[in-house]
Design a protein around this nucleic acid. Sequence first.
DNA 1: TCAATATATGAATATATGAGAAAATACTCA
DNA 2: TGAGTATTTTCTCATATATTCATATATTGA
Lengths: 105, 105
Amino acid sequence: MPVISTKLRARLLDALAHPNRVRILEAIKSGYTCSCEIAPDLNMEQSNLSRHMKILVERGILIPEREGVRINYRIADEDIFKLLDMAGELVRRNAERSILEEEAG
Amino acid sequence: MPVISTKLRARLLDALAHPNRVRILEAIKSGYTCSCEIAPDLNMEQSNLSRHMKILVERGILIPEREGVRINYRIADEDIFKLLDMAGELVRRNAERSILEEEAG
DNA sequence: TCAATATATGAATATATGAGAAAATACTCA
DNA sequence: TGAGTATTTTCTCATATATTCATATATTGA
């Protein structure tokens, strides 16, 4: 199995390392397919959303498919959600640890 | 099960979103415990390494434990490596997709 | 072709991050 | 306590990123 460079992995993670981009992926998970739907839902400027979308596409996380004037985005690899879930799980456990440490002094 | 905020998840991912921090975690995985060993191994400035270590500690990924002059760092939650592995896997699959697309035209 | 809608981009600004150098701090041991 | 080592902090510069506004581009259908 080839080793994936730290640079490429960091680049993927970096694509996810912004609250708005996590929100965008969740919006898509919940059924939205085009940024014309996502922008009002997330209350983001269209231009700003467009730039975040570009990043997600560039890094291979989303695949754009034009349908008339709109562009539908689909998840390139559904396992990206496993990664996001895992991040949530790690945050949760970390919070628990912090609480335990506080109690222990 | 409580929902973990996009912000916190992005913050965790952001901690991993730098090649050097991925390298640091790999160095620790491979057995290094203190930054005095990691700095020369990764050929990083000590002060620079220190700041990256701080980020990893702040975000709950590493736990520092002083042992005399040195500070040993241990992984707070080994599942962080699952997340890193998954990132590698996603990058790998993405690369394969790109190649297939090229071939398909 | 023109209007309407969706998306992309250039420019400007604010903020964040990364890095190195030097100084400060913390610890151990003689 | 003083020397030596490990680590952190502070300062500063350069670069990267995020955001908004205004404008440009692309697509469809009348």
